[in-house]
């Protein structure tokens, strides 16, 4: 799949964090961005849209990131979920991986890491 054909779900309660992530990804292509601001929205949008990739914050209102991962993975075991969090402790990392996340990025986000994630999953234009 090319990046331009992909749907990418960005889930973070901070409008700034969502914008920064979208801005970085947009350097590499023009995917369809979907946005969620809490764990429950993330689950609902995932089920409806089946995005190719999800970026997910852990500390979020209504339902936290790990609860959202578990629910999404039970719905789609191949879901590709990347945690983006300011709390990159070993135990948080383990909890996220145990819940079904594929990768964990510590904030502040660094464009190189995002670039790596994008290029390892999508073909160029």
């Amino acid at each position: 799949m090319t990046l331009d054909d992909a749907k990418i779900l960005i889930s973070d309660d901070s409008i700034l964090a969502r914008k920064q992530l979208k801005d970085i990804i947009a350097r590499y292509g023009n995917p369809t961005f979907l946005e969620a601001t809490n764990g429950q929205d993330t689950i609902d949008i995932y089920k409806k849209e089946r995005p190719a990739l999800v970026f997910l914050d852990i500390v979020m209102p209504v339902k936290d990131g790990n609860a959202a991962i578990r629910e999404i993975v039970s719905f789609d075991k191949d879901a590709d979920i990347i945690i983006v969090s300011s709390v990159g402790t070993q135990s948080q990392l383990r909890a996220a991986i145990d819940a079904g996340a594929n990768d964990f990025i510590q904030k502040p986000i660094n464009a190189e890491q995002i670039h790596h994630i994008i290029t390892s999953r999508f073909e160029g234009r």
Binding site: I15, L16, A17, K19, S85, V87, T89
Partner: peptide, 23 residues
């Protein structure tokens, strides 16, 4: 975005603090 930046900084600081406390 300005309002979110204030929250974001505080959240980032506290997040990095919890990483340090854990380590």
């Amino acid at each position: 975005y300005v309002q979110a930046s204030i929250e974001d900084f505080l959240n980032l600081h506290n997040g990095l603090f919890s990483v340090n406390m854990s380590n």
